[in-house]
Nucleic acid binder design. Structure first.
Lengths: 148, 148
DNA sequence: CGCCATTGACTACAACCGTCATCGATGCAA
DNA sequence: TTGCATCGATGACGGTTGTAGTCAATGGCG
């Protein structure tokens, strides 16, 4: 067989000049995200409830849902509280917190932290409704006031 | 051993009620993204050039860079033009195009397509400089004019 | 002309992800 | 009490990703 010798662990030592405070907030995969969406809507749920809530969207068997729940527990993203024979699962982070983290890392990665180019992209794709624009307008007004 | 029997292909049938026009634009992984960043800056480069450009950032061996380049070619994301004994690689998509795609899918996934909550998150995290705000202001003004 | 350095192809391998089947424990109904 | 339905644990399989070693072809230099 003769396997190679050195072999360092993968997935870990990612960068050379890594920024200091790189606390990885445990990545959520797309499939896991679907589960989180459910849990963020209605707090503690059993596995069966989650599956039920997802039936319209995902064609998953119960095992799949349960595996995903287990993995989320392992990652420390959700909490499992025993309730008789089963567990009740709830998120450990508010959705807003997660959104903030994801948004920042996304904007950092793609736009070096600048928000404006991002909004420009959205505008170009005609993704902004009149309502969006009004909302952004109000938001900006508020920001401008805060600054001065 | 007794392997299970049915076994459907993974990764494919993702959703049940999938949105129609779901043309997958071939996913770029984080490691591949580093390569793309280089290629988006300086058009056709040989593998060695790419490695050189990344030396400060990533501690990759030449093999790693070459593997990533090959995978990008396989995915149809970059183009390899033979140049004597070697290849010269160039992106097939402009960076702006990629940014747009990523932005839309990100906003869709996290915010159901609404831009305003995204900007709100950025504001909350004090990620917006005065300059950003001015830029957004101008952008919004323009959008408002376009709409009427 | 012969040797060496460079280059891409192929292979490898561990961790991770999407998806499930199977199994053992366990509590409820008949 | 006995059986069944349910639940979580375990493991598995095929694909992807990060990272890298090895090898054969090939072209330039002495």
């Amino acid at each position: 067989m003769a396997l190679q010798k050195p072999k360092r662990d993968p997935r870990s030592a990612n960068a050379k000049a890594g920024s200091a405070s790189d606390k990885a907030p445990e990545r959520i995969t797309p499939a896991e995200h679907a589960i989180m969406d459910v849990l963020w809507q209605r707090a503690p749920l059993a596995a069966a409830d989650v599956m039920e809530a997802l039936r319209a969207e995902k064609d998953w068997t119960s095992t799949t849902v349960k595996t995903l729940l287990s993995r989320l527990v392992d990652k420390g993203i959700i909490d499992a509280a025993r309730d008789g024979r089963r567990f009740l699962y709830s998120p450990r982070l508010a959705r807003a917190h997660y959104e903030r983290t994801m948004t920042h890392s996304f904007v950092d990665r793609l736009f070096g932290g600048r928000a404006a180019p991002l909004v420009a992209h959205l505008a170009e794709g005609e993704r902004l409704t009149d309502e969006d624009i009004a909302e952004l307008d109000a938001l900006l007004e508020e920001l401008k006031n805060d600054r001065r």
